[in-house]
């Protein structure tokens, strides 16, 4: 069995680009479908990547999303260039958000983004600092 991971997506995400926001998730969904990944896993992945992608759009100065696949797992990496998350524990608390009123009026900033990511991911690792931005790595198991 090969554990070598193959990159299937790498896309830049621009800050405050609500026009394209969600497109990386949509692209990944289509790629996974073509690869024959079960629909339940495709759905999980779509929820995770949409939340992470919109976090970059709403909160960051811009970043990128990368997806890698092996026989056993799907790895999603979302890296942005700042400004970083001040309190990671708070960021994982349901209902906590630093989004502006304007963003909340659009139906974002409910404080459920990272909570949903954690719920559907099999593994999640978030590193964030003011200088180095936020780096999220999510693993979704493909093998049962």
């Amino acid at each position: 069995m090969s554990l070598q991971k193959q990159q299937i997506l790498n896309k830049e995400i621009d800050s405050f680009d609500f026009q394209s926001g969600g497109e990386a998730s949509s692209d990944l969904k289509n790629i996974l479908r073509k690869l024959g990944v079960p629909s339940k896993i495709v759905r999980k992945t779509a929820i995770i990547t949409y939340e992470l992608e919109m976090n970059v759009v709403i909160h960051s100065l811009g970043g990128e999303i990368t997806a890698l696949i092996s026989e056993d797992e799907l790895e999603i990496r979302v890296d942005d260039s700042g400004p970083g998350i001040e309190d990671l524990d708070k960021a994982f608390t349901a209902g906590f958000s630093t989004a502006s009123d304007e963003i909340r009026e659009m139906g974002f900033g409910a404080g459920m983004g990272l909570v949903n990511v954690k719920r559907y991911a099999d593994q999640i690792d978030v590193k964030s600092s003011k200088d180095a931005g936020t780096h999220v790595k999510v693993i979704i198991n493909l093998a049962n």
């Binding site: 609500f18 926001g21 969600g22 998730s25 949509s26 779509a46 919109m54 139906g107």
Partner: peptide, 16 residues
């Protein structure tokens, strides 16, 4: 059924 009419609504509708 929603009161949100902005462009990201389309992204969500497409993904789901």
């Amino acid at each position: 059924l929603t009161v949100q009419g902005h462009q990201n609504v389309v992204a969500v509708a497409l993904l789901v």
